[in-house]
Design a protein around this nucleic acid. Structure first.
Length: 656
RNA sequence: GGCGAGAUAGCUCAGUUGGCUAGAGCACACGGUUCAUACCCGUGGUGUCGAGGGUUCGAAUCCCCCUCUCGCUACCA
């Protein structure tokens, strides 16, 4: 195909806090199949991926591991890149946010935005609502108080830099409305508009002082650049953006990006904050952001402690690269989450890859060898039934192009497999084994096998973007080359007289579900046994939270804690997380609303004696008055545990 | 609580502007075939198209209401 211009595609950069599981590895395969396809279409593709390597979580993990953050991310980034390579992905650039050119540009970008007034220091704004953890501008306040909860706002304790999002909101709303293709799938567009843009954008915190592992703010080195201004900018720094305007050549050529492929969880950052950063920098906006769904593990909850997390490299060991690629691409519809499990993998591989495709290639080559010593030649003895096969083969390209145009990758592959199914049916219709018994029909038999070989190589050529290794194997077995898209418009390009391999290799072996599951369980069991001591240590490890300012004893003395006995408890119907408890404190009973539904059922609350903050000013939650607070411990995953006296104590006992 | 999406065969889903006996893939059953990796081809369903009501000659498709699920968001003392 002719040159269609450039196509710049990116994945989100992977966070280097640990090895990515199969759900995280899906995105790179999806991006790769699109990149490969666009190349075949004739685009000059630039495909960028990489890693996001800063932040407190990494700082802590490195500390736990007793190594420097840099050593830590070097290890994980290497692991991620190894998996990307294992998955046979054809990225052109792997950027790391610890790369020096990136760090330098982020500093310059931060400075530039600060100098032009888009980034400001918040401490002098002083309008922070602590319980809401939100900053407000003067104009957002209602009667001088927090618009969310109606309480006093006060000067921020911790200084931070903020980005003035509201300044660009109208332009962004305009852009989204005039570019319906910008946010994909479209259902996400409404969520962004209704939840963030239309109600009014809040300013975004873009620096932190609570940890060090980040890019220092050049002119205020107490601060490091906080996540999004660091991570999102990779899309431009990776191709040579320069905040001073001295961009590298690749920038001028590739920006704006044609497609940011990301997970649905970070759509907000890519469709609101990122475009606004770009507006502030005076750069063009990406053409499209596609928030793909997730691939979820079907057989029980995935958890490290259970040791049943699925990783791409394990799956490749079991099934091979292309089988895993096929599965994740096929099981992921356009908009809904997909499910992965050992059983589903085996089912998919057996029915599509082994039966439909693998067996087709194998039986066709076997017949060529059996009847013609492997030589494939069209003797021109056609029959009406041939036309339908040829039509199917030549029309599949357009069908696949149409599906790919809207990024419906799974549907595109289904079109290709329809061609393979048509080939299998053609064998039944022509019955080569019957033709073989009649010497007079030898030429007809040759034509039939030629048509089959041609149909297969045409299908394999379309399959190349998704299963590059398999396509190459098929081409090799048929002793020919993968076709370009232009060459797929004509049926009959397979060189007559060519000789196919005499030793057809099984492309995909049929698998036994039971065997695979047993083998997988054995693998998990041995791995868990191996990792048990270390794993336990991690599970039991401490949690670090952001430190608050030191307080005086007097501050503490203001708080009154007592043991409360829960004598009744019911769910607050209107809310998702609230339970309303009647708590006996001494001789009085207080009504307390707590956001713990999901952690505790209403019935199991009754009878518990727990720690209560009793002198908190009553507040109304979901229309119900709450006169105190039940105290809970919370772990890193958000699991809650009520605090209770270690021995039985009477309701009302003071906690001091 | 706000906004939005959805509820169709055992499973995953298609069903365009309402129109003849509601489809596909997988699974299952039966039949055919034997070149091939026990594969391929064909045939098959009793699907109350979530419940109820309405508009219409006619509704899975439009309107109302109900139940449930999900997403985003708020709240979560």
């Amino acid at each position: 195909m002719s040159n269609k211009g450039k196509y710049y595609i990116t994945t989100a950069i992977a966070y280097t806090s640990g090895k990515p599981h199969i759900g995280n590895s899906y995105e790179i395969v999806l991006a790769d199949s699109i990149a490969r396809f666009k190349r075949k279409e004739g685009y000059d593709v630039f495909f960028q991926t990489g890693t996001d390597e800063h932040g407190q979580k990494i700082e802590l993990k490195a500390k736990d591991a007793g190594i420097t953050p840099q050593e830590f991310v070097d290890g994980v980034a290497g692991e991620i890149r190894r998996i990307w390579d294992l998955m046979d992905t054809s990225y052109d650039k792997f950027i790391r946010t610890t790369d020096d050119y990136h760090e330098k540009q982020v500093q310059k970008i931060f400075k530039k935005l600060y100098d032009q007034g888009d980034i400001y220091k918040s401490s002098y704004e002083g309008l922070y609502c602590t319980p809401c953890e939100s900053f407000w501008t003067e104009s957002q306040l209602v009667d001088g108080k927090c618009p969310d909860c109606g309480r006093e706002v006060k000067a921020a304790k911790e200084e931070a830099y903020f980005f003035k999002m509201s300044k660009y909101a109208d332009r962004l709303i305009e852009h989204i409305n005039t570019h319906p293709e910008f946010i994909q799938p479209v259902s996400r567009k409404n969520e962004m508009m209704n939840n963030f843009l239309l109600p009014g954008l809040q300013d975004l915190c873009v620096s932190r002082t609570s940890f060090k592992w980040g890019i220092p703010v050049e002119f205020d080195d107490k601060h490091v650049v906080y996540v999004w201004l660091d991570a999102l900018t990779n899309y431009i720094t990776g191709i040579g953006y320069d905040a001073d305007g001295n961009h590298g050549e690749a920038y001028g050529k590739n920006w704006p990006a044609d497609l940011h492929l990301i997970g649905k969880d970070i759509i907000r950052f890519h469709t609101i904050y990122w475009p606004i950063f770009l507006m502030a920098l005076g750069e063009e906006l990406p053409k499209q952001v596609f928030g793909h769904p997730w691939l979820l593990q079907g057989d029980g909850k995935m958890s490290k402690s259970k040791g049943n997390v699925l990783y791409a490299d394990d799956l490749v060991d079991f099934f091979g690269v292309d089988a895993v690629r096929y599965f994740v691409l096929h099981e992921m519809p356009f908009e809904n989450d997909g499910v992965i499990s050992w059983e589903l993998l085996v089912e998919r591989i057996n029915s599509d890859l082994a039966n439909t495709l693998g067996n087709l290639v194998n039986r066709t080559i076997s017949m060529s060898n059996k009847y013609f010593d492997g030589v494939v030649c069209d003797k021109g003895v056609t029959e009406p039934v041939d036309e339908d096969l040829k039509k199917c083969a030549t029309e599949t390209l357009d069908k696949v192009l149409a599906k790919m145009e809207t990024l419906h990758v799974a549907d595109a592959m289904t079109e290709i497999f329809a061609l393979f199914k048509r080939c299998n049916k053609y064998i039944d219709e022509t019955e080569p084994w019957v033709l073989a018994k009649d010497e007079a029909k030898k030429d007809r038999l040759a034509t039939v096998l030629y048509n089959l070989t041609e149909g297969i190589i045409m299908g394999a050529s379309l399959l190349e973007s998704y299963l590059p290794g398999t396509a190459a194997k098929i081409a090799a077995q048929l002793n020919t080359e993968i076709r370009s898209f232009d060459e797929l418009k004509t049926f009959g390009l397979y060189p007559g007289g060519n000789k196919v391999t005499d030793k057809p290799e099984i492309l995909f072996a049929r698998l036994d579900v039971k065997e695979v599951v047993e083998k997988a369980e054995a693998m998990f069991a041995s791995r868990q046994a191996e990792a048990a001591p270390a794993e336990e240590k991690i599970e039991e490890s401490v949690i670090d939270i952001e430190a608050k300012d030191e307080i005086l004893y007097d501050d503490f003395a203001k708080l009154q804690f007592q043991v409360g006995e829960i004598i009744a408890c019911e769910e607050v119907k209107k809310s998702k997380k609230l339970l309303c408890s009647q708590v006996r404190i001494g001789s009085s009973v207080k009504q307390i609303v707590s956001g713990i539904k999901g952690h505790y059922g209403a019935e199991e609350m009754v009878g518990k004696k727990v720690m209560v903050l009793v002198n908190l000013k009553p507040a109304t939650l979901a229309g119900i008055v709450s006169e105190g607070m039940l105290l809970c411990a919370e772990d890193a995953d958000g699991n809650l545990a009520l605090m209770a006296p270690e021995k039985d104590m009477p309701a009302g006992a003071e906690i001091c």
